[in-house]
Amino acid sequence: MSDTPIEEIDIDPVEMRKAQALKREKIGRWLLPLIVVVLSIVAWDRLCVWNDIPHYIIPRPGRVLDSLITDWSLLIGSLGTTLLITFSALAIAIVGGVGLAVLFAQSKWIEMTFFPYAVILQVTPIIVIAPLIFIYVESKFAGLLICAWIVAFFPILSNTTMGLNSADHNLRDMMKLYGASRWQTLRFLRLPSALPFFLGGLKIAGGLSLIGAIVAEFVAGSGGVGSGLAFRILEASYRLNIPRMFAAIILISVTGVLIFMFMTFLSWLFLHKWHESAVKREI
């Protein structure tokens, strides 16, 4: 063998193309949805103009934007109220959902006894229970909270229960072999095993608690200073202030999207080091 110097190896063209495709995908992930949104807004505007649709039926995007700006102080106050209910309900749903799941995981009997109630609460539409709740509960805030909580807690409960029960059986055996207490098994094995499931449930519950809060506000219906976005929508519809309705709806959607993005980030934060769903694949 002659000792010729090792030649500079060119980057494999296949790898090169792969890297470029990856780069394009990265840009496309942001750019494509953005283009769709912009095109939709343009189409919305054009359709209104071409068909002579009056602004009290479908306002043009510009009018909605105007309303968003002029009514900002009104809307932002209502958004604050809605958010307060949303996040309080979500917090109680997390504590209650995880707490109940841990309780269920301690004993099959408790789970068998109480799980049906959780299912009943989940499958009965909140819109039909809400009027009753507002009759029985004096405080409007508490009523709204209960409604939003009922909607949000089930995905957390059901996912966390499943997660707690999905701990590896060999690891459970090992815990038993080393004489782990019930609490230690929960702390070191079952809770960490449940984390990906819990975060999946949280992603759903985040959106649902917003929906629950809005629906409850619709049912509660009463206005006043501390009223939420749903009331603003109702109020605007009575006054045929369609641009403000649109503005409020857009605010709700944007809030929902932000909540979802935050939950996705939270998921990534906790799982990216070890869980398959969040680990970045190389090769």
């Binding site: 590896d168 060999n170 055996d173 960490p192 070890w274 869980h275």
Partner: peptide, 10 residues
């Protein structure tokens, strides 16, 4: 055990 049976999160 036959599988490494490790805690993935640790």
């Amino acid at each position: 055990f036959q599988e490494p049976t490790l805690m993935q999160w640790a």
